[in-house]
Design a protein around this nucleic acid. Structure first.
Length: 470
RNA sequence: GCUCCCAUCGUCUAGUGGCCUAGGACACCACCCUCUCAAGGUGGCGGCACGGGUUCGAAUCCCGUUGGGAGUGCCA
């Protein structure tokens, strides 16, 4: 394994874990697994005011949730970019000593001013030959050589950059701290990274980094720039505008397997006509060369569809276990002491085919654990608008009272009799009963719901409904 | 503005010169099933951005146009 490829995932801890980052991590992980390589996690915390330590744990937790676990033999890290600051500065000074970098005392404002007056973009190389020594406030800039830089990218193919279009970029800030481009390259060299698989937004950086790799005496790793994830406006997913936090999806009851599966189908597809496939098949089939070149819309609706399918694939027992977090005290919308696991168990199978995310579960069963379920007024009005509604409720209450066996089939038979005597359809008459008992116009099958709820509560609610109608 | 990337149904994709009158999935519509809602089943709608080439033959190769996107920091 020591000779296998070394992939890396290098997020910066600046907020909740982004689904785009999750996909990139997953791409790296799938490749690592298939090729018997190593997945290196490096936290890029380089001296940035937005970095917060708690986000680092968030990244680790989110990766673990996706199946990329710290304890796995092919997982390495986390490393912290800040720990290598000395090496970054050393590398920079080596470039300075070799004349491949030079100091410049222009402030950002001055650089901009010169650009404006010269009519050209960016830094113009003002200090290239001024022979400035290191000093406070002076930045170290890389002396971009003449010529052309050709990036060989596994996804894009060959991408050419004319070096004349690349300005002498900053390696060390005025305060002496290393910048991303440099730190990133030095870290990758230290960690012997062989494959850099990252989002397309880094492609414009790549010629700079490749020059750095070469200037530092190594040959560049294999690059692969995967397309970004976009919103409905076709803009890159952003933390501010879009719902991108993996943590949030987890809380709502998206299953990790469906999130992983869905994310992998953005920009890529398994062979054959099925998109829902086990992770192992993804590992077996995923190849960077097959990744699409265009941005992919992160479609929550399709994610939900995947999730619904994953939920339905579970055994009832698995489903019941998976529901625990959303039924937990403090989370569920009923008093903790009212919850009855047996009742939930009895309803679980009927709920399972009716939800797309686990967070949908409580509203399907809350009527079982609430003394008086809140009534959906719109549903109520609609359900009782017909003149027969009151009578049906009264008769059903009577039938419930006299019913010998409190089972779904008996209850159904009872309502059927009432329905037929009035020349109605069960589809009609079930409505007032449903709203009266559950508070909602839709939900799990009615008679099973009544059976599980029990005779007393059912009767009480039917009587309340009748009273309400006056 | 400049640099770079991209372009198959509304969306995600299959497709690597003939198997394509372009396949699947999500969404949507209809029907079936049905105590509501789902689930399930069946069917339908719907696409190769445009214009030139190359070729016996192009969604697939080349060029251009148009349209999108990303980058352009002493952020990462």
């Amino acid at each position: 394994m020591s000779n296998g490829p070394r992939y890396r995932f290098a997020p910066s801890p600046t907020g909740f874990f982004h689904v785009g980052g999750a996909r990139t991590a997953l791409y790296n992980w799938a490749l690592t697994l298939r090729e018997g390589g190593v997945f290196v996690l490096r936290i890029e915390d380089t001296d940035e005011s937005r970095n917060q330590p708690q986000w680092t744990q968030g990244i680790i937790d989110a990766l673990a949730w996706l199946g990329i676990e710290k304890g796995h033999p092919q997982f390495e890290g986390p490393y912290f970019q800040s720990d290598n600051a000395t090496a970054h500065v050393e590398a920079a000074m080596r470039l300075y000593a070799e004349g491949r970098a030079y100091f410049c005392d222009l402030t950002p404002d001055q650089v901009q001013e010169r650009a404006k007056t010269s009519g050209k973009q960016g830094y113009d190389g003002f200090s290239r030959d001024r022979g400035l020594e290191p000093g406070p406030g002076r930045v170290l800039r890389f002396r971009v050589p003449e010529g052309e830089t050709i990036v060989h990218d596994l996804v894009r193919g060959e991408v050419r950059f004319d070096n004349a279009t690349i300005e002498d970029f900053v390696l060390l800030r005025g305060n002496g701290s290393p910048m991303f481009l440099l730190a990133n390259v030095v870290d990758d060299q230290i960690m012997r990274i062989t494959h850099v698989v990252r989002a397309e937004e880094h492609l414009p950086n790549t010629p700079k980094q490749q020059m750095l790799w070469e200037a530092l005496g190594s040959s560049a790793p294999t690059w692969a720039h995967v397309p970004v994830l976009v919103n409905e406006q076709r803009k890159k997913l952003s933390k501010r505008r879009d719902k991108v936090a993996v943590e949030q999806y987890r809380e709502e009851g998206i299953l990790p397997a469906s999130m992983v599966n869905y994310l992998m189908t953005l920009g890529w597809a398994p062979h054959g006509d099925t998109e829902i496939v086990p992770w192992q098949r993804i590992v077996d089939e995923f190849r960077l060369e097959d990744v699409n070149h265009s941005p992919a819309f992160f479609d929550i609706q399709k994610l939900l569809a995947f999730n619904g399918e994953y939920i339905r694939k579970m055994t009832v027992q698995e489903f019941i276990s998976a529901c625990e977090p959303v039924l937990a005290p403090g989370v569920a919308p009923w008093p903790a002491d009212k919850f009855d696991a047996e009742k939930f168990r009895a309803m679980a199978e009927l709920v399972q085919t009716r939800v797309q995310v686990l967070a949908d579960v409580p509203s399907m069963v809350d009527f079982l654990f609430l003394d008086t379920p809140q009534v959906d007024e719109a549903a109520w009005t609609k359900a009782v608008k017909d003149s027969w509604a009151r009578d049906v409720l009264v008769e059903m209450a009577a039938a419930c009272e006299s019913c010998n066996e409190w089972t779904a089939v008996h209850l159904k038979t009872a309502l059927e009799a009432i329905t037929e005597s009035r020349g109605l359809k069960l589809g009609k008459t079930q409505a007032p009963i449903r709203v009266a008992v559950t508070g909602r116009g839709v939900g799990p099958p009615l008679f099973e719901s009544l059976e599980v709820l029990g005779r007393d509560a059912t009767l009480r609610r039917l009587h309340n409904a009748v009273n309400r109608l006056g």
